[in-house]
């Protein structure tokens, strides 16, 4: 993290509203349709693609042994980029590799361009051009489209900061961390300040997850994006249980402890109530996360993979 979020370019230029995002995407789609690309290269629904790109980024990051922070930055870059440029005008694989490459430089853990290209080729084969100059060129476009606003503030730091005052258990921190990782599939980072997202994750980890635990006897760590299959399964249950929780929160910003270890939960809800955290925003974030897990349940990468391949081949973008 550098600089101050409140004076940051992220807040000034890259914190958007849902309407604005929808508008921007619609604009790009319409343009594609006008150019006849929309029909020629149908792409899966947006959420599906986001899941797919997230999955790809994650695999690439794992090959490069990146920390979570550069990965999160890369995901943010990709989201920002595709708000301004149509997916159909790009080679998504090359683009996401570029995001990873640039994010690494940005987060002070530079990777050699050659190793990024090699690892990306190992994953996406012929879709990544061997010539490193292509990626360098792409990096240049990326910076320009981002208006060279490159510093991204992430929610992870907030989570680390409040873990002590909130007395979060290791288990809860891990779970919240996983929720944060998953939040990068959604548009949350484009919509809300990082601390709001962090508190959403804590809220999910502390209030919602134990409910699932007891209900479905699911391992919470399954909801990390790492174990996708489990996550999809867990997703549904999160959706059901947290709807109930939501009602309680919105009612009083305090939660009926129900059958949980009540002292701690009531303490926590008191904290939430008194903290001045925007509960409205947290509820919206929670809903976003729920719909993510919903979509995840039916998601398969096959459709996305095929349509992206068709796009790249068809437009000879590789």
């Amino acid at each position: 993290m550098a600089a101050n979020f409140w004076t940051s370019t992220q807040r000034a230029h890259w914190q958007l509203t849902r309407e604005k995002i929808a508008d921007m995407r619609k604009g790009l789609d319409e343009e594609d349709t006008n150019k006849g690309l929309g029909l020629a290269f149908p792409l899966p629904e947006h959420k599906q693609l986001q899941l797919y790109f997230h999955h790809c980024l994650q695999r690439l990051a794992r090959r490069l042994q990146l920390r979570q922070q550069p990965l999160a930055t890369a995901e943010t870059y990709l989201k920002r980029f595709y708000l301004k440029v149509s997916i159909r005008d790009t080679n998504p694989y090359l683009m996401l590799s570029t995001c990873v490459y640039l994010a690494c430089k940005m987060e002070e853990c530079p990777q050699h361009i050659r190793s990024v290209v090699n690892e990306a080729r190992a994953l996406f084969q012929e879709f990544i051009p061997q010539d490193i100059a292509k990626l360098a060129e792409c990096e240049f476009h990326l910076i320009s489209e981002l208006n060279s606003y490159l510093i991204v503030h992430h929610p992870y730091r907030t989570l680390m900061e409040v873990q002590v005052p909130l007395k979060l258990s290791t288990d809860e921190i891990m779970a919240a961390w996983s929720f944060l990782n998953d939040s990068y599939i959604t548009d949350l980072i484009l919509l809300y300040p990082p601390h709001t997202i962090a508190f959403t994750a804590i809220f999910l980890a502390v209030f919602v997850r134990p409910a699932i635990h007891t209900q479905a006897n699911l391992n919470a760590s399954g909801s990390t994006a790492l174990g996708m299959g489990t996550a999809a399964g867990a997703g549904g249950s999160i959706a059901q249980s947290s709807v109930g929780q939501n009602a309680a929160v919105s009612a009083a910003s305090g939660i009926n402890p129900q059958n949980h270890s009540s002292a701690r939960l009531s303490q926590m809800s008191e904290w939430f109530a008194e903290s001045g955290v925007e509960m409205e925003a947290i509820i919206e974030c929670t809903q976003e996360m729920i719909s993510l897990y919903d979509a995840w349940e039916t998601w398969t990468d096959k459709v996305c993979r095929e349509s992206v391949a068709r796009l790249i081949r068809g437009r000879q973008l590789s």
Partner: peptide, 29 residues
């Protein structure tokens, strides 16, 4: 052709965020 150097990246990265009368202003990119 191996990407933009770290120097340039850092310069852009920080000057885009830091605005102060005693810090050189990056007017545009």
């Amino acid at each position: 052709r191996d990407g933009i150097t770290m120097d340039a990246i850092r310069e852009v990265k920080y000057l885009r965020e830091l605005h102060h009368p005693n810090i050189i202003a990056l007017l545009d990119v």
